[in-house]
Each structure stands twice: as C-alpha cells, then as structure tokens.
Design a protein around this nucleic acid. Structure first.
Lengths: 348, 348
DNA sequence: TTGTAAGCGTTATCAC
DNA sequence: GTGATAACGCTTACAA
C-alpha cells in the first residue's frame, strides 16, 4: 500500500529500531531504556536525557508486542459488544475508549450481534493478546465463553447489565427493573390495557428481561400482559410499523404500548399517524434507548434513557483501578448500579 | 475482578497452557501444533486429529502476542477515526470490523476528535503492536504522523477522503466535489442567495473542503459566497439553531442554506419553524450525512448520504487483499472513489 | 510431512 | 541507580 512493493524487508523482524539500538546510541544498557519508558522515576536525569535524545534521533517506537510477551500483560483491553453502529452502544464504546486511551491503554473491539458463538470467538481471539482486561456485554454467554472467562487470569467486566451474584464486575442496570419502571409509569397515568412489543432482532435477551418486568408490574395490579412479537426477519423500524398496524385492529385496542427500543417505537409512531390515530390521545407510546431522534419526532418520544456513556466511563475506571493505574487509585467497586432515566415527552 | 484475589499467578508468564504443552500431550513437536493453526493443510490428518484432541482437552488458546513477536506481524489492524459514536463513522467502523473479523483479524480502535496530536499518539501506540495494517481518516495529519506512516513498513489506508496524489490507498470521496454537488443542486432549483454554515467543531477540515466546493460552484455562476461560522464552543444542534436565528434576521435573508452536517441542519430546521418560517417555502435546507433522523424530521431533510458502510467494507477488503488473505485475492486497487448520493427530501 | 535449532524485542530477576 | 542474563511462547529457516 503505502510502502514500496519490493522494499528490502527482512524476513524476520520488522526492521524497526529496537530498544538495543537506542541503548547503544545512548550508551546505556537496554534495561535502562526500558525503565525510561516504564518507570522513569528510577532513571537518573542524566541518563534520561541521553536516552531521550537517542529515542528522538532514531525515531524509536517501543515494540509493545515484545513487551507484552515479556511481561505477560499488554496494555490492551478487549471489549465485545452487540453492535458498534447502534446509537446505544456507540456512546459506551466512545466513553470507554477515551477513558482508556487517556491512560495509555488501547481498545480491541469486536461486535457479537447478540450472537453467543460470535462472542465466544471474539473472546478467544482477545485472550490470545493477553489483554489487561476484558469487557463483555450482559451476563448471557455460552458455556465455552464462561469457561474461558473464568479460567483466564484476566479481570472481567460485564456491562449493560447488573447481576449481583456473578463474579465479574458489574456496570449497568437491571433491565427487569426498567420494564417495571416503564409499565408503572403508564399505570400511574391511568392506562390499563398496556401492550409490549418485543425486539425483532433475536438474541437481545436483555430486552426480554425488560418485558418480564413489564409483565410483573401488570401482575401486581392484577392485569394481564399483552406481548406482541414481530416477525424476526424484519428491520426494527418496519417491525414497529407492523406491530402498530396489527395492534390497531384489535378490539379493544391497547391504550398504551411499550416498545423494546426506540426504533420500534418510531416506526409505530409513523404507522399510527398514517392510520389516522391521534397520539398520544388515542394511544400512548413509550420506547427505550433515547436515541438521538427521540426528541425530534412529532410527537416527541417518551422513552427510557440508559446511562450509555456512564457505563463506558465507569467500566474503564474499574479496569484502570484494578490495573493500579495511578490517578485511578481506589478500591475496585464490584457492583455498579447505574440509573436508567425515564424521559417523559409528548408520546406518552 | 473475576479471578481470586490471591491466585497463584506466576510472576512471569500468564500461567496459561502453551503450545509446547499441547505438543507434549499430542506427542508431536511444537511446530506441528503451530502448523495445525496456521497451515492446517501441511499437517496430516492423523496428526491433526491428535492435536485437535489435545487442544480441546487442555483448552489451549494460542498466544497471539508470542506469535506476533516471532512473525513480526500480528493479526491486528489499527484504525484511527475522528469519533466512534457519531452516526457517520460508526457505520464505517462496524463494516470494517465485521469484514475484518470474518477473516480472523482484530480491530484496534482509537478516536482522534479531529485532533492531529491525538491521532499521532494513537498511530504511535498502534505501530507498537506491529499491526498488519493501519487505517486513518482523511489526508490531514501532522508531520510526525506522516513520518511514522511513511517509515513504518505497514500498509496504510486513508478513508473518508480521496487524494490521488498520496501514497496510501484511498477509500472515500472528494469532499470538495460534494460541496459543488450540493450547491449546484440548489442552483438548479433556482436558488441564488445560498449560504453555507460551517461545523462548530474545529478540526473537521473535510467539512471545509465541502465549503470550498460550495464557494466554487457559486463562483462559476458569478455569485458571492455567504459563509456563516458558529461559535466554536457550541454543540452542533445548538450551533444550527444559532446559525438559523442569525441568518433569518439578515435582509435579504438567504433563500437556501447548506449545512456542514445534519445535526446543524436539524437544529436550524427547529429554529426556523419556531421563528414562524414555512420550510422549504421560505428557505431551503440541505444537510450532510443522512443521519438516521433525517427522514424522520418534519419536513424530512434533504441531505448528502456518504457511503459510510461501503468505506468500511472496501477499506477492509483492500487490507485483506494486501495481506494475501484467501477469498479476498486480487490486485489491490489504490484509488477507490465512492459515490456520495444526494437524497432529495422535503426540506430543499 | 515432520522435526530441530535459533531467534523475535522486550522485561523480570538478581547482582553490583 | 545501573547492568548482565535469562526467560516470555511462538515462528522462521533449514534439515531430515
């Protein structure tokens, strides 16, 4: 690509400047150069000066691979997340990556699409890089992944979830509780016939926990649940339309609907309006995620705002604390329950 | 975190199962196990079977760090991108990561926030992992980064841009041309007093190239440019409102406005409506990015849709081709000019 | 097809 | 505070 096709690349070695060459140029031993980078305090100012000059002159870039092998811990953290481009997780990744890189750690990223097999292969690959820590999403993993995570001598953080009974550090919230929260909100506003529309994407088990919370909240008041399951092969926005079209025709129709996410809710909003419904007068709509468009819709969307950024920040902080990174010192708090905020807007 | 506080961790080595242990268990040499993973064809079925059994039994996970050191090329690709959570780049990252991981490569990710110093430090860190390739955004880098990229014996791909004269593989489009495209579209619809609102975030130099395209397209018809620069400390949505509020008061006011991105345009749309403007009758609005909300706004937003996913896919494909990954064979095309589509909707 | 020997570039350990 | 030496776990090069 950018280099010459037939560059005189050595078969072995990257041909890059090495620690030893810097040491020779600075007339010190290799280990001193190593210390210059890793424990500068332990190198006297004069040496430090000579080393710095040599590093500059030669354009030395430390070989982190070699360092990682020697020390058995690379400054790299792996994260497996359902998807990168959705509005929800992107914030978490951004915050996590930023916090990490501020302290000299790098992010190794992979997406699972809620698929446990893909998660397993990502975790396996990441473990091969002897990461300083590993972050996975939710507590749903297949047995092979569980075993790898348990056996690997690596700190593990589970995000976007909160299971006090599990060993890994937890940073997230109780999806079940969020389902309860959404449902009670509508109950308190006087709605009774409340439906729940599931995610069209299979594998999003956390969304099912929210559904179960909804069911529980209804049961508390002696009400029956009403769960709609869209076709699995349908994009979320379309699935939302489909759900609304179907639920409108029921007699009696629901007075309110909770959706597994904002994309579904947005589709439903559009379908409802197209069908001549007055929203929220004829039907209340509640989403989940507080996607950026939620406040731009007409009517604006009532939804639950997950602590996306906070999850990324807290996860990174816990990792750094565990690694003993200065400026992040402190006891590593294993349970980190964050709040999911209900944003009441026009739709419900 | 998940492991016991006082695990009997060796000071040196991760305590993990090694290639040698697998070899012993399978009663073969270490190199055969290595081949089993890297060139399975060169291992006879009987050996393969014994090795597979041993790998399973011991739960062996290859140490990619050691492998990377020995072979001087890790199966890792670094990507530096302005931001992760914006709707634009997230698609690129997702597509890139997916394509890569399908072929056994991992993504090392960092964001630069359009800051050249941050980019430099990310590139330096990534080079330390002897990546198989490096992907950077745009052709704007500081001299130190340029030097590292040129000196490093690593394939480099520049995305979201297209500079035929530069050495790295280019995957993107001509921002200047996109500015021309947007402006000509409005000119052809009969608008003459066309303003351009810049990005509030400094450092997005590509957006300035789009502005220059706009200026050129106006000049072709002998028209004067009208560039509005929002306060730098303002979030894009707010900056859009600010711009609209200011431009509305001018006399004569613009007939049409091109925005550096959809967030600005969305803010302007809202501010315009709040001020009592009929859109697009009173003023046409064109954005850039085709963010997910663009079609949900009222009026829906006319905008330019960049080939976000395609950029990620093509970039990954070029990288894999260069690495000689089977199933991706073929000549590495250095120049990849993708199309930016104008999505005509209601706003302009 | 399979094996042997020699590194890859760094850090841990121990001595000065 | 500084240095010599031996790993770290794997792959290349070459031999059988």
């Amino acid at each position: 690509m950018s280099q010459a096709k037939d560059s005189p690349r050595k078969r072995r070695g990257a041909g890059r400047v090495t620690l030893a060459e810097v040491a020779r140029a600075a007339e010190v031993s290799a280990i001193s150069v190593s210390r210059y980078f890793n424990q500068p305090d332990q190198v006297s100012p004069p040496l430090r000066k000579r080393i710095e000059a040599a590093v500059q002159a030669l354009g030395y870039v430390p070989n982190l691979v070699a360092g990682g092998l020697a020390s058995a811990r690379g400054r790299i953290v792996g994260m497996v997340i359902p998807n990168i481009s959705g509005p929800i997780f992107a914030q978490t990744i951004q915050a996590f990556s930023d916090t990490l890189s501020r302290h000299g750690y790098q992010l190794l990223l992979a997406s699972s699409y809620f698929n446990e097999a893909q998660e397993e292969s990502a975790v396996r690959a990441f473990l091969g890089w002897s990461p300083a820590a590993l972050v996975v999403t939710s507590h749903f993993h297949n047995p092979a992944t569980e075993k790898m995570l348990a056996d690997a001598d690596v700190p593990v953080v589970e995000i976007w979830d909160y299971c006090p009974d599990r060993a890994p550090v937890q940073v997230g919230f109780l999806h079940h509780q969020v389902g309860v929260q959404a449902c009670r909100y509508l109950l308190d506003k006087g709605y009774r016939r409340i439906a729940f529309v599931q995610n069209s994407a299979p594998g999003d088990l956390s969304a099912l926990e929210r559904r179960d919370g909804y069911i529980e909240a209804l049961a508390e008041r002696g009400l029956e649940p009403w769960v709609f399951v869209p076709s699995a092969d349908c994009a979320p926005f379309e699935a939302g339309k489909q759900a609304m079209d179907a639920l409108i025709r029921r007699n009696p129709r629901p007075e309110a609907i909770i959706f597994a996410n904002d994309n579904l809710a947005a589709g439903a909003l559009l379908a409802g309006q197209r069908a001549g419904l007055q929203l929220p007068e004829d039907m209340a709509i509640v989403g989940f995620g507080d996607y950026p468009f939620a406040e731009m819709l007409l009517p604006s969307l009532t939804t639950l705002r997950p602590p996306s950024r906070a999850i990324g920040e807290v996860a990174a902080l816990r990792v750094l604390q565990h690694l003993g990174v200065a400026a992040c010192v402190g006891e590593v708090q294993r349970l980190n329950l964050l709040a999911c905020e209900l944003i009441a807007r026009e739709s419900g």
